[in-house]
Design a protein around this nucleic acid. Structure first.
Length: 905
RNA sequence: GCCCGCGUGGUGGAAUGGUAGACACAGGGGACUUAAAAUCCCCAGGCCGAAAGGCCGUGCCGGUUCGAGUCCGGCCGCGGGUACCA
C-alpha cells in the first residue's frame, strides 16, 4: 500500500487539471453561469495566511459550483499600484515596476501550488498599461458625463520633506521620515461625484439581500443621510452666516455660532487679524483624518463678531472659530447647543460659554443633588446621561419631550444649589443664564411637545421668516482621486495656458508612466521629470503640460471585477461578456473593505453603466458578499531614539512570563496582542513553509477547519500537523477500503449509509453557507464512523466515495487520487456532487431531554411521531424526572416536538 | 471621538430561543513495541462527593421567557473602519 505523498499527488493532479482545461471559463448556453471572486491581492511579495484563507474559501465555492453543474468563472489578478513599491524603491534603489512584477511572479509561484481552480488565462495586473489605459478611457468618459471635477481639498503636508503624506505616513501627528509636525494644506484635486449617488447608494442597500447586515449598516451610516435645517444667522456688522443643523429643536439652547477654521469667513478675518491667522495656523497642525480631528483638543477663537438669534433679534450670540467644525460637512458652520451635544458642551465649558437646557432630562427626578461633590457633579451626571440624547429615527427625532416640567426641574437644581457647599463656575453660569421665559409660540411658556413637534415648529418659524429651509444632507463626500505620487495610473489630462484643463485624446491612450525616474528625493518623480510632462495641447496643439498627479489605487480596484469578463479587450469592457458573466455571484473578501472599496465599486458600476460600459443590471455588481475575518498576529514594537516605532518579526522575539524581549539584544518589546497582519508591521506569517512541509491540501484543510470564516483568527502553527495526520489517515483508510472484499452485516451497512447521507446533507449545507469549519468537523466524525464501521466492502466503498467527493472542494488533490484509487472514471472535480436521500435522514426513534424548571434532569427515548400528550406522559413517568419532582405536581408541561420537554412546577 | 463587530474549557471552536462545550489541538492514562516513532483505545469545564448525584458555569450587571451563549437595556475589554495603507 502506498503512503500519502502530498508533493507527488499535488503536482500530478495540477497537471491533469491544466491539461483538461477544467477551470477555463468560456461563455456557454448549456449550464447556468457562476462568477465567484475573491478580492484580488496587493503584490507585497509573499502570500500570507490571510490570502490562503481567502482564496481557499473562494476555491471551495468555485469547485462546489462546478460539481453542481455550473459554468464557473473564477479569475485572479493583482492590485498592483500603490505606495509600498515606491517605498521599496526609496529604500533599496530599485524601480517600482521591477519590484512589483517580480513580486507578482513570486506570489503567482506561491499560489499555483495551492491548486486553486483559477482561470489563469484571464490574469492581469492593474499596473499593466493595457489595464490602466482602459481606466484612463473610463476617466475621460466620466469627465464627459460630468462625473469628475476639480476643487480644492486638504492634504497632509510635510513641511520638511515638502511633500504630501498619506494618512499612514503620519505617525502621532508627525511625518514618518522627517519627524516634522504635519500640517494641513489645500491643493486643487480631481473628484468623482459619488455624492450625486448618495440617495441611490443608500436606498439600493435594501436590495442586497445576500450581503451581511453589518456591512449594509456601516455603509448606510457612512452615507449618513440626515434631515435638517439650513438657515442664516444675521451678523450685527452686516452679512450673514449660513449654518446647517439636524437639531433645529435645540435652537433655543444655542450658546454660540461656530465656523470651521477653513470657512471663507475665517480666511477673510485672518487677512486682517494676525491673531486669527495664528489661530488658523494652530488648527492646521496635525493630520487630516477624521479620527485626528475628532480626538484633537477642542480649540476655539472668539472672533468678536456677533450674530442675532433668528427667532429673537435682541438675543446676540458670539461667533467662534472652532477646530472641530468640518468645512466638508454641511455649510462648515454650526450653532452650538451645549446642553444636548457633548462636543458643544466640552467647548462651552472650556471657554465658559452658557449652557441652556431645552429638554428635560428623563431621569431628572432621580438625580441625587446632595452628593458630596455638590451640584456640579449632579449636573455632570445629567449631562452625561443618555436622556439628553434625542434618538435619531428614520422619520426624524422623536420620543423625548420638550420641556414644560423643565421649569420645575431648574427650580430643583437652584434649591439644591443653595444647600451645596461648592458652586462650580459652570453650574452657576448655567443657573444664571437660563432663559426659560423665552417664548417660542407666544404662550409665555414652552409648550410640552415632542422633539418632532419642536423640530417642525422651529423649522416652520425659520421658513416663514425666510431665512432658511429644511434640507436633506449626506455625510458622504465626493471621492478625491488625485495622488501626488508616481506609482499609479496617470490622470489623462493636459494643462494648457490657452485652453485650461484639456482631456487627452482617447487615441493617445494609454498615457504611460515613464520608466526613467528617480526616488532619491521626496515627492512625486513625475513632477521633476525633465521631459515627460511636456506635451501638445490636444485642443490647440501648442506646448502644454501633463497632469502629474496619478489616481488613487481604489480606482484600480473599483472595476477590475468587470474587466475580468473581457480582460484582453481594447475597450474597458465588452457588453456581451458583461451581460453573460456579471454580476459577481459571490464576492469574498476582508471586512476591512466593508465601506470604501465596496462603496466605490458600487459607484463605479453605476458610472460605467451611465457611460455604456456595463448593462443596467450591473448597477449593483456583487449579488452576494461574504466578509471573512482577518488573520491576526501579535505585533512587537520598540521605539527608536526619536521615539518612532520599530516593528520586529515574530521569529526575532522571545516570549517570557511578563512580556517579550528581542532575542538578539534582550531588549524588552511592547506586545500588541492581536492585529491585522500587515507588511508594514512585520507581523506577517508565511504559509509556504507549511505547504512545503505538508502539502497544499493540508494547508487548505487546516485554514478552513481552524475557525469560522467570518471570524478573525490568531495564527498559530500548531494544528497544521494534526490536519496532515488526518489526511494521511483518510488516505490509508480509503486505500484499505478500495482493496477490501470483507462481508458485513446488513445492520452495519444500513447504519453506515444512513450516516453517509446525513454527512452529505450537512456538509453540502455547510459548504453552501460558508460553514466550512463545521462541515469539516462533520467530515472528521464521518471518517471516525467509517473507520469503526463493520459494514461490508461495497457499502464502505460507497461511503468512502462520498467522503472523497465531499472533501474534494477542500482537499482537491487528495480527493482526485483517492477517486482514482476507488476505481472511478474521470476527475472528481467535474463529477456530479452527491445528493442526500431525504428518507435516510430521519430517525424512527429520537431522544428528548426532559427539563424540570429549565434544568435538564433526564432524557426519554420516543418514536419520532409520538403525539404531545404521549410524550408528556412518558416524560412524567421517567425515573429521573420523578425523583427530581419529588412528588410535586407539575403546573405546566411544555412539549416542543422533536426538541425538548420542560416540566414547570 | 464616531460607526460596525467580537467576547464560550488550557487552546481553536460547536450549538434554527430548547441536553452548553460537537469536532479537533495541547494534556493525562493505557495497548502494541526491547525501545522509540507511528498507530489504536480510554479520560478530561470548575467545585463537592467513594459513587449515585448535586451546585456553579458562555466578559460584567440587569431584563424578557416555561427555557437565554443566542433576544433587549446598560457597562467593560479587544478588533476593524474613520475618506491618501491596501
Amino acid at each position: 500500500m502506498s503512503r500519502y505523498q502530498a508533493a507527488d499527488i499535488e503536482a500530478k493532479w495540477q497537471k491533469a487539471w491544466d491539461e483538461a482545461q477544467v477551470f477555463r471559463a468560456e461563455r456557454s448556453g448549456d449550464r447556468p453561469k457562476y462568477y465567484v471572486l475573491e478580492m484580488f491581492p496587493y503584490p507585497s511579495g509573499r502570500i500570507h495566511m490571510g490570502h490562503v484563507r481567502n482564496y481557499t474559501m473562494g476555491d471551495v465555492i468555485a469547485r462546489h459550483k462546478l460539481a453542481t453543474g455550473h459554468n464557473v468563472l473564477h479569475p485572479m489578478g493583482w492590485d498592483a499600484f500603490g505606495m509600498p513599491a515606491e517605498n521599496a524603491a526609496m529604500a533599496s534603489g530599485g524601480h517600482p515596476k521591477d519590484w512589483t512584477y517580480s513580486n507578482i511572479a513570486d506570489m503567482r509561484g506561491q499560489m499555483k501550488p495551492l491548486g486553486l481552480s483559477i482561470d489563469w488565462s484571464r490574469e492581469f495586473a492593474t499596473c499593466d498599461p493595457e489595464y490602466y489605459g482602459q481606466q484612463q478611457a473610463l476617466f475621460l468618459d466620466f469627465l464627459e458625463k460630468g462625473l469628475v471635477y476639480r476643487k480644492e481639498a486638504v492634504v497632509n503636508w510635510d513641511p520638511v520633506d515638502m511633500t504630501v503624506l498619506a494618512n499612514e505616513q503620519v505617525i502621532d501627528g508627525k511625518g514618518w521620515r522627517s519627524g516634522a509636525e504635519v500640517e494641513r494644506r489645500e491643493l486643487t484635486q480631481w473628484f468623482f461625484k459619488i455624492s450625486d449617488f448618495s440617495e441611490d447608494l443608500l436606498d439600493s442597500l435594501d436590495t442586497l439581500d445576500s450581503w451581511p447586515a453589518k456591512v449594509k449598516l456601516m455603509q448606510a451610516n457612512w452615507i449618513g443621510k440626515s434631515r435638517g435645517l439650513q438657515f442664516a444667522f444675521e451678523r450685527t456688522d452686516g452679512g450673514e452666516i449660513e449654518v446647517y443643523t439636524t437639531r433645529p429643536d435645540t435652537l433655543m439652547g444655542a450658546s454660540f455660532v461656530g465656523i470651521s477654521p477653513d470657512h471663507p469667513l475665517a480666511k477673510e478675518l485672518a487677512e486682517k487679524n494676525p491673531d486669527v491667522a495664528a489661530f488658523r495656523a494652530q488648527c492646521a497642525k496635525g493630520g487630516t483624518t477624521e479620527e485626528a480631528l475628532e480626538k484633537a483638543e477642542k480649540l476655539g477663537f472668539d472672533t468678536g463678531l456677533k450674530v442675532r438669534h433668528p427667532l429673537d433679534p435682541n438675543w446676540e450670540l458670539p461667533v467662534w472659530i472652532a477646530n472641530f467644525i468640518l468645512m466638508d460637512y454641511g455649510t462648515g458652520a454650526i450653532f452650538g447647543c451645549p446642553a444636548h451635544d457633548q462636543r458643544d458642551l466640552d467647548f462651552c465649558r472650556k471657554y465658559d460659554l452658557p449652557v441652556k437646557v431645552v429638554y428635560k432630562p428623563e431621569n431628572a427626578e432621580v438625580v441625587s443633588l446632595n452628593e458630596v461633590n455638590g451640584i456640579a457633579a449632579a449636573v455632570d451626571d445629567i449631562w452625561k446621561s443618555s436622556a439628553y440624547a434625542v434618538e435619531e429615527r428614520e422619520d426624524g427625532p422623536d420620543i423625548e419631550r420638550v420641556c414644560v416640567d423643565y421649569c420645575a426641574y431648574v427650580e430643583k437644581i437652584r434649591f439644591s444649589d443653595e444647600t451645596a457647599n461648592s458652586s462650580s463656575p459652570a453650574a452657576t453660569k448655567w443657573l444664571l443664564d437660563r432663559r426659560f421665559d423665552y417664548v417660542v409660540d407666544g404662550s409665555g411658556l414652552f409648550r410640552s411637545m415632542s422633539a418632532e413637534e419642536a423640530f417642525n415648529l422651529i423649522s416652520d418659524n425659520i421658513e416663514e421668516l425666510g431665512v432658511g429651509q429644511r434640507v436633506t444632507n449626506y455625510r458622504l463626500r465626493d471621492w478625491g482621486l488625485s495622488r501626488q505620487r508616481y506609482w499609479g495610473c496617470p490622470i489623462p489630462v493636459v494643462h494648457c495656458d490657452a485652453c485650461g484643463v484639456v482631456p487627452e485624446r482617447k487615441e493617445n491612450l494609454p498615457i504611460r508612466l515613464p520608466d526613467d525616474v528617480s526616488f532619491d528625493l521626496p515627492g512625486n518623480p513625475l513632477d521633476r521629470h525633465p521631459t515627460w510632462r511636456n506635451c501638445e495641447c490636444p485642443k490647440c496643439g501648442k506646448p502644454a503640460q501633463r497632469e502629474t498627479d496619478t489616481m488613487d489605487t481604489f480606482v484600480d480596484s473599483s472595476w477590475y471585477f468587470a474587466r475580468f469578463t473581457a480582460p484582453r479587450s481594447d475597450t474597458p469592457t465588452v457588453l456581451a461578456e458583461a451581460e453573460y458573466w456579471m454580476n459577481v455571484d459571490q464576492y469574498i473578501g476582508g471586512i476591512e473593505h466593508a465601506i470604501l472599496h465596496l462603496l466605490y465599486s458600487r459607484f463605479f458600476a453605476r458610472a460605467m453603466h451611465i457611460c455604456g460600459h456595463l448593462p443596467e443590471k450591473c448597477r449593483e455588481p456583487f449579488d452576494a458578499l461574504f466578509t471573512q475575518g482577518m488573520v491576526t498576529h501579535a505585533i512587537y514594537v520598540t521605539r527608536d531614539e526619536n521615539d518612532r516605532p520599530v516593528y520586529h518579526f515574530p521569529e526575532d522575539i522571545e516570549v517570557h512570563e511578563s512580556g517579550a524581549r528581542l532575542g538578539a539584544t534582550g531588549e524588552e518589546v511592547d506586545v500588541i496582542p492581536s492585529a491585522k497582519m500587515s507588511k508594514s508591521k512585520n507581523n506577517v506569517v508565511d504559509p509556504t513553509t507549511i505547504i512545503a512541509q505538508y502539502g497544499a491540501d493540508t494547508a487548505r484543510w487546516f485554514v478552513l477547519s481552524d475557525s469560522p470564516p467570518e471570524r478573525d483568527v490568531e495564527w498559530t502553527a500548531a494544528g497544521a500537523e494534526a490536519a496532515f495526520k488526518h489526511l494521511t489517515r483518510v488516505h490509508r483508510l480509503v486505500c484499505e477500503i478500495a482493496d477490501s472484499s470483507d462481508a458485513g452485516t446488513p445492520e452495519a451497512d444500513e447504519a453506515l449509509l444512513r450516516e453517509m447521507h446525513k454527512t452529505v446533507h450537512e456538509v453540502s449545507g455547510g459548504v453552501e453557507s460558508f460553514g466550512f469549519n463545521s462541515a469539516i468537523a462533520k467530515l472528521y466524525a464521518f471518517t471516525n464512523t467509517l473507520a469503526k464501521s463493520q459494514a461490508g466492502a461495497a457499502a464502505k466503498r460507497q461511503a468512502a466515495t462520498a467522503l472523497v467527493q465531499l472533501m474534494a472542494p477542500m482537499t482537491p488533490h487528495l480527493s482526485e487520487e483517492l477517486w482514482l484509487r476507488l476505481g472511478h472514471e474521470g476527475l472528481v472535480a467535474t463529477a456530479p456532487w452527491p445528493v442526500a436521500d431525504e428518507a435516510m435522514l430521519v430517525e424512527d426513534t429520537i431522544t428528548l431531554p426532559v427539563q424540570v424548571n429549565g434544568k435538564r434532569r433526564g432524557e426519554i427515548s420516543v418514536p419520532r411521531d409520538m403525539d404531545k400528550a404521549e410524550v408528556e406522559k412518558t416524560a412524567l413517568a421517567n425515573d429521573a424526572v420523578k425523583r427530581s419532582l419529588d412528588g410535586a405536581q407539575p403546573k405546566k408541561v411544555i412539549v416542543v416536538p422533536g426538541r425538548i420537554v420542560n416540566v414547570v412546577v
